[in-house]
Simulated scan of single mutants.
Amino acid sequence: MPRSEATNAAQVDAGHIVELERALARVAYLLTRVRRHDKAMVQCGLTMDRASVPLLRLLADADEPMRLGELATRLDVEAPHVSRQIQRLEKAGYVERVADPDDRRAQRVGPTESGRRAVEAVREVMRGWMAEALADWSPEDLKAVAVLNHRMVDAFLDHAEVIGDLGATARDRPSA
């Protein structure tokens, strides 16, 4: 859709956009609350701070170890923040540093087997909570919400690429 049509569509559906933004803010809040994180860690039997989880998930989903700068860019955070989190994850045995094959002076970071298991444990807990909360939803509704959410994220990623946002990119998209 050309930019002017997209702008016009957003203006026409401004009320829907407001409600969508509110719903997304509520979801983000619910998924990132400290109590939820703490309960998930207890249920998983893990000790990991909240900021480490998305970082470890990103590493576990990557095809290969990543440089710290790329991690910071993809997570849209400052490099020192990533460096501190990587040190914590490394100390806990969840990640390891490896030589960068493209630059002898640089290092990349990848998950250990323990880190991969930790990510899967967190995902399993979160999926369980979602399944409980959505137990009375029909399979069709669940599929529709999943499809529409992927479509929305893809649109956000496309827009981010248009405006030059170097954070999440199309390669972060799940395979169909």
Score class of each variant (00 low, 15 high):
residue 13 D to M: 13
residue 15 G to N: 12
residue 17 I to Q: 10
residue 20 L to Y: 11
residue 21 E to D: 15
residue 23 A to K: 08
residue 24 L to I: 09
residue 25 A to K: 03
residue 26 R to S: 10
residue 27 V to Q: 09
residue 27 V to H: 14
residue 28 A to M: 07
residue 28 A to H: 13
residue 28 A to L: 09
residue 30 L to A: 13
residue 30 L to I: 11
residue 31 L to R: 13
residue 32 T to Y: 08
residue 33 R to C: 08
residue 37 H to Y: 08
residue 38 D to W: 06
residue 39 K to H: 12
residue 39 K to C: 09
residue 40 A to E: 11
residue 41 M to I: 04
residue 42 V to R: 15
residue 42 V to A: 15
residue 44 C to P: 14
residue 44 C to E: 12
residue 47 T to E: 14
residue 48 M to K: 11
residue 49 D to W: 00
residue 50 R to Q: 08
residue 51 A to W: 07
residue 51 A to S: 07
residue 51 A to H: 07
residue 54 P to Q: 06
residue 56 L to F: 04
residue 61 D to N: 09
residue 63 D to E: 15
residue 64 E to K: 07
residue 68 L to G: 03
residue 75 L to P: 00
residue 76 D to S: 08
residue 76 D to Y: 03
residue 76 D to G: 04
residue 82 V to C: 02
residue 83 S to R: 14
residue 83 S to A: 12
residue 83 S to G: 03
residue 85 Q to H: 07
residue 86 I to V: 15
residue 86 I to S: 04
residue 87 Q to F: 03
residue 88 R to S: 05
residue 89 L to Y: 03
residue 91 K to H: 14
residue 93 G to S: 11
residue 93 G to R: 14
residue 94 Y to A: 03
residue 96 E to L: 05
residue 97 R to M: 06
residue 98 V to N: 08
residue 102 D to F: 05
residue 102 D to V: 01
residue 102 D to L: 06
residue 104 R to S: 07
residue 105 R to I: 06
residue 106 A to Q: 12
residue 106 A to S: 13
residue 108 R to E: 05
residue 109 V to N: 01
residue 110 G to H: 01
residue 111 P to L: 01
residue 114 S to A: 15
residue 115 G to S: 12
residue 118 A to F: 09
residue 120 E to N: 11
residue 120 E to K: 10
residue 121 A to V: 11
residue 123 R to C: 05
residue 124 E to G: 05
residue 126 M to W: 10
residue 126 M to K: 07
residue 126 M to H: 12
residue 127 R to P: 01
residue 128 G to M: 08
residue 129 W to N: 08
residue 129 W to R: 10
residue 129 W to E: 06
residue 130 M to S: 14
residue 130 M to E: 13
residue 131 A to S: 12
residue 132 E to Q: 11
residue 132 E to N: 07
residue 133 A to E: 12
residue 134 L to K: 05
residue 135 A to H: 15
residue 135 A to L: 10
residue 135 A to Y: 08
residue 137 W to H: 15
residue 137 W to V: 04
residue 138 S to H: 10
residue 140 E to Y: 03
residue 141 D to C: 04
residue 141 D to T: 12
